[in-house]
Design a protein around this nucleic acid. Structure first.
Lengths: 226, 226, 226, 226
DNA sequence: CATGAATGAGCATTCATTCAT
DNA sequence: CATGAATGAATGCTCATTCAT
């Protein structure tokens, strides 16, 4: 399943050699990610980005047209990394339920590893120009789609029970729960480590927290209550 | 359970009359909320805030010491409103499970109503100076505590089954799920309206959609119940 | 005949006191005229304008919105001065021909005095934004209109003979001939001083130098008359 | 009468082959003229000039030493074209008056055709370095000299009556009147087309607007008035 | 208390020119 | 000769904050 390149916005450059463009932009992105994480987009200056990228401002502006372009490249890069790492771990698929369990674990590990980056997209993407933002959101949706696919496979092979209308929402829930690990870390870390978090969230998601192995109590409760 | 005022950071002012301070600060906050929502914190100027507040910049700076103070006041105000509206609807408590169901519904209604404000805190609180941020996060935790309490009550009266270690996390999940309705609206709205969202999320949270047994009752519940 | 104020473009300002605005803008214009004359519009920096105006850049931008605004104010100021000085000397009107002769003389004296300013408008007005340029050109036409009026009066009282269709063009010729004294000074000065220039041009314009008959009286006129 | 090449400033080049230099510089000039007309000298970048010239910036700088050099080459080129076209039409000379009449017509046709170029020299030559400017002005004078020559011939053959001291000025007047057609086109075109303009200006210059065929009235008026 | 003019550090971006390949 | 990536000084403009009135 190839990463469709059509989903990224082309950023114009004055430099003709595409290889060089890629190399330099990677330098820029690497520098900018660090800076944006440390100081935020608005408080980071283009000069700083240039300096940390190991190039002059003039050179920087040969590879992007604006500071917003840098932000876009950063978001795109993070999303691509995220997606690649995610898809990478989904090849050893078994039945849907196990795939989901595995995917959640992998996803949360990736999110833990990329906490700062996730936070960055989260807090700064609003500073993107509208068109760039659209691209970023589309990508976000695409990534959510990965979990949608897994859920659907689980429905098909019968290993998961879920109202079909809840599939999309469940996928979003999973994604958000990963982001939450990043943007609520200030409090979650006081209560849970990553393994705790994975275990409990997976359980909640997979309906295994009910005390009895049967899950019957939940049903009974539901039947009475309404 | 009163709103503890000790949890808000005192912002110094040159003005003696506390009543006046409160009135003027409310003007400031009202203006700033609109502006921050429309343009973001960084793109809003103090001049604009002053103008929209109906006062001069000079006057503005009599009631706050910096633009960040305004942001703090805005966050505080939103949080207080949010908390008040939430607590307001929790008086008619029955057993824990029903309280939870009700609270989620109320919470999501409030979040729907305060979408922009929620987003504002979400995206701009990172621009707060560290100390102010601490206050805001503490408040966030306090609000999360409301759901923790409800969950605990449910555990106690036996109407909810949940691993005690999952209580805090579940509370955070609920809070985040409300925020998610705000910050993922660009995609969620394409699939669900508020009532859909409430129904499906409640079901998922209350373990009704996922069923290792027949799965039949989940659909029935959804169709009939709400 | 009042100077219609409707013909000047209003430049927005952040400062409320109109008197102060006028005073400060005059400072700005005075400084800018000198700088633009010395270095041209493009080579003059806003910082220089501010410094020479005796204010900070911040203050400068309280009174104009852009460097182009300064250029517009400069053009407007020069035009107004020019027009005022021109109209000022046209009160003692006799018959049309004498008025014309007098007006040309006055005009050329003013143009001699305002050489640099005239040149400035000439060379820099192209840098104005389109709308401002329109205002400047309108003003230029208005000033040309002064001579059109004089010419028409001469036609009416019979003291001038001229194809009515040539009136407008003749007025433009006069205006341009004054400007020419400014922008061709590098060569004209080598041949003529101001009085020479006035005498010869007046003669040429009034059809006295060219004579299909004797040609004698033109020289006589020139030597004695002025 | 050959175009004296001594009147053009030599622009250094790193390239040995003079033919190549000429070819490339013509490319540069052609591109630059278009760009300068469209955007003005200051707003045109060397990159644009290079691109439109079909060469790299590096190559551009092999043929000129600075952007100002390009401007000089442009001015020189326009002047040469102008002069060539002018001299071209002056071979069929008759008596001086008719030559003048013809020359004015030809000149105005050329000026109409080269409006933009004329305007370009007019508005941008001030950006030339002093020495280059001197060359351009010298050329301008040379072109003016064409009309001086014609006028003098008219004086000699008696077909023109003119105070000898007015000859130079008259020549300048004619030149300026042609330029005026370019730089006042925004208003002149509203009143006159090229043929109108030629007819009226020629008449004014050649003293034919006086109602009586004799021109006597002008003299009479003059005699009385002073 | 209120006003609003003044300050000036700071920022994104441009572009003529150079020079290694 | 040609290329085009790199340089970095320079520039127009913004805006939080101060303080005299």
């Amino acid at each position: 399943m190839p990463v469709r390149p059509s989903t990224s916005k082309p950023i114009p450059t004055a430099v003709k050699d595409p290889q060089l463009v890629e190399v330099r932009r990677q330098q820029i992105v690497d520098a900018a990610v660090d800076l944006f994480i440390k100081k935020g987009f608005h408080r980071t200056t283009t000069r700083e980005i240039a300096r940390e990228s190991g190039m002059s401002i003039g050179a920087l502006y040969e590879y992007v047209e604006s500071k917003e372009d840098v932000l876009y490249l950063v978001c795109e890069n993070i999303h691509n990394t995220l997606e690649a790492r995610l898809r990478d771990t989904l090849k050893e698929a078994q039945n849907g339920r196990e795939t989901l369990r595995l995917a959640i674990r992998q996803y949360l590990y990736v999110m833990d590893d990329m906490q700062d980056d996730v936070l960055l997209i989260y807090q700064e993407s609003k500073s993107l120009p509208p068109e760039s933002l659209r691209y970023v959101l589309r990508k976000e949706e695409q990534i959510t789609g990965i979990f949608e696919d897994i859920l659907r496979r689980g429905l098909e092979d019968g290993s998961l029970q879920l109202d079909p209308r809840a599939v999309t929402l469940m996928a979003h829930n999973i994604i958000v729960l990963g982001q939450m690990w990043a943007f609520r870390r200030w409090v979650l870390r006081r209560h849970y480590d990553l393994e705790d978090y994975i275990r409990v969230q997976t359980s909640l998601l997979l309906n295994e927290l009910m005390d009895s192995g049967t899950g019957g109590e939940a049903r009974g409760e539901t039947d009475d209550g309404n």
